[in-house]
Amino acid sequence: MKSPHISIPGTTIFDGSEARRGYALNKMCYSFNEKANRDEFLKDEDAYCTKYGLNAQQRAAIAAKNVLQLLAAGGNAYYLAKFGGIFGLDMQDIGAQQTGMTKDEFKAKLVAAGK
């Protein structure tokens, strides 16, 4: 059997080790499926993060709304998307932020991939 653990640049595989580190953060983001929870978060971000037991790294990443930091804190893209949704961020906003591009540059990169 081939080793499953190959290294892919710029990519974190969300495996058991990430899932363990990120559980509280992902659980909080999962709760954002419900509008009442999104509203509660917006009303008192600090209290909401405390309720879910975020650690200091996760709390700081949420405060910074920084996707790479959220990933580094164990966040999973699918749950983080629900956090991003609260602020109306779409996938090109999130892509641009992570790659250090403007949104237009990121969109141009996507179009170029089709050439």
Binding site: I8, P9, G10, L68, A77, L80, I94, G95, Q98, A113
Partner: peptide, 13 residues
């Protein structure tokens, strides 16, 4: 497609 990480936007036609 890839949504996350520095490799976000990866596509392999």
């Amino acid at each position: 497609h890839q949504l996350e990480g520095e490799r976000a936007g990866f596509i392999n036609k």
